[in-house]
């Protein structure tokens, strides 16, 4: 009886500790949302790159993390777009020619998602990004 009592307290104590750790973890990763928004506003892209791994660390499965990240980025993009447009740097019409084809690409991408060798594509895109980075940095 006595032992049971103590083990109960012990169990509750650890449960409490665990919950606290979990809470800290949640708060920490939520700040990632802030940085993702900041990055996306500052450089016009890249927010999702932070959110997907953060969600994965919080235990959200990969496919779900991906979909949720789009849900987070969309309002950020809308707000950022409004700020860019109202500053006069860009107009909606400049983006229009790309949007139609972009949707075609997105549908194609979604349809063949399972059939394309994503690892290979990732590598190619990675090399292209690094090449572009050097162009931007040293040209």
């Amino acid at each position: 009886m006595e032992i049971n009592f103590f083990s109960d307290i012990k169990a509750n104590y650890f449960k409490h500790l665990y919950n606290k750790k979990d809470k800290v973890k949640k708060i920490f990763y939520s700040t990632i949302g802030f940085f993702a928004g900041f990055l996306n506003g500052l450089l016009g892209a890249g927010g999702g790159m932070l959110i997907v791994p953060a969600l994965s660390k919080l235990g959200v499965e990969r496919k779900k993390a991906h979909a949720t990240s789009i849900c987070v980025i969309l309002p950020i993009c809308i707000l950022s777009s409004v700020m860019y447009i109202s500053s006069g740097k860009v107009s909606i019409f400049e983006a229009v020619p790309y949007i139609g084809w972009g949707i075609v690409g997105a549908v194609v991408g979604a349809m063949f998602l399972s059939k394309i060798n994503q690892k290979f594509l990732k590598k190619i895109f990675g090399i292209f990004m690094i090449w572009a980075a050097f162009q931007l940095l040293f040209r």
Binding site: F38, A54, V72, M83
Partner: peptide, 12 residues
């Protein structure tokens, strides 16, 4: 994530 992201976006 979205709520904090919006604050970050304004700053960015």
């Amino acid at each position: 994530f979205g709520a904090l992201g919006l604050v970050g976006a304004i700053l960015g």
